[in-house]
């Protein structure tokens, strides 16, 4: 589980580093270029070392262990594909009904899509409002802070605070029953897909909002004026000017949201009453029963799946170029 968020958080700065290297060097003379290059490598070295130690190395260990053998009290070096076979056990045989792994991924991807779409609409709308409808910078900063300050509290606390609100005897149900709108408390508010999606949207909207806002603030206002002058309607300006120029923010926000949802097991566990599967929870159960190689294989599959989604996302936009 730990690998996925790391990879998500780690990618943007690494791309940024890589992009900086050649651009400075190309214009310089050959002799100077060599020196600048060397200097740039030295400058990048501390960061690279940190990545090597805390990102690449653990990842390699996970990869290596995923091919090992295990029993209930030890793991032994080997090179077998048993763990991967275990992850996909019965997946082909049981078609068309889904095996555990497919069902789990399907459920996780469903949340991914739901949360991504909702946070995108919310994040984009709020960012648009902040960027184009608030006139003074002070007010913009104040309102942006209003959006972000709640995120200074712990994830878990923000999530758990929904429970007294949504529960069978919670505030919403008390109001609904008290006002006579329903006879019995509404059960699907808590420990349901709805509750999980709600909590995710609550937790992750800021991750979408901030990059989009950042992109929008950098849009040259004269472009919008030009579009207006050329006779574009509000919708046309939005579709042909604002959205294309916000694509970087949208993509980065999407990467955050997708990787966080894919790797999560706490939100799904708490808000879903532990009755909804998530890949993270499967890995968690396996590690607690000391099935490290199997858990590692699962983590590698999850990493590949997440990277696949991010790869697809980056097809829509070349982040390096835009940055």
């Amino acid at each position: 589980m730990t690998t996925t968020p790391t990879s998500g958080a780690a990618s943007p700065p690494r791309i940024a580093d890589a992009a900086m290297l050649p651009s400075g060097a190309e214009t310089a003379a050959t002799s100077r270029r060599r020196r600048t290059r060397g200097g740039a490598y030295w400058q990048a070295a501390p960061m690279a070392l940190v990545f090597l130690l805390f990102f690449v190395l653990p990842l390699v260990v996970v990869l290596v262990v995923s091919f090992w053998q295990y029993n209930s009290y030890s793991i032994t070096p080997a090179f077998v594909f048993d763990n991967y076979a275990g992850v996909f056990d019965g997946c082909l045989a049981s078609l068309p009904s889904l095996c555990t792994t497919f069902a789990t991924y399907l459920s996780t991807i469903k949340f991914c899509l739901l949360v991504w779409a909702t946070t995108l609409v919310l994040g984009f709308t709020i960012a648009y409002f902040l960027a184009f409808h608030i006139r003074t910078t002070t007010m913009q900063i104040v309102l942006a802070l209003v959006c972000i300050i709640p995120f200074w509290t712990s994830n878990v606390i923000r999530m758990i605070s929904w429970i007294p609100l949504l529960g069978r005897n919670g505030l919403i149900n008390q109001i609904l029953v008290g006002s006579g709108l329903v006879d019995h408390p509404v059960e699907w508010l808590l420990y349901s897909d709805f509750a999980v999606t709600l909590a995710f949207v609550h937790l992750l909207t800021a991750f979408m909002l901030v990059p989009i806002l950042n992109s929008m603030m950098r849009i040259d206002r004269s472009l919008i004026e030009a579009a207006r002058d050329a006779g574009a309607s509000g919708a046309q300006v939005l579709w042909n000017v604002v959205i294309p120029l916000s694509k970087t923010g949208i993509t980065i926000g999407s990467i955050f949201v997708v990787t966080l949802v894919m790797g999560d097991f706490i939100t799904i566990g708490v808000m879903g009453g532990q009755q909804i599967a998530s890949v993270g929870k499967v890995i968690n159960v396996q590690t607690s029963y000391l099935q490290f190689p199997l858990a590692a294989a699962n983590a590698v599959v999850l990493l590949i799946a997440t990277l696949g989604i991010i790869f697809t996302l980056t097809r829509f936009i070349d982040i390096r170029k835009e940055l």
Binding site: S72, G86, D89, T100, A103, T104, S107, A277, V282, Q291
Partner: peptide
Amino acid sequence: SVMDENEYLITKWNEFVAA
């Protein structure tokens, strides 16, 4: 207890949670 078929049980349990 921890059963002899513990590994199988964990697989099945994960399947149950995903069902």
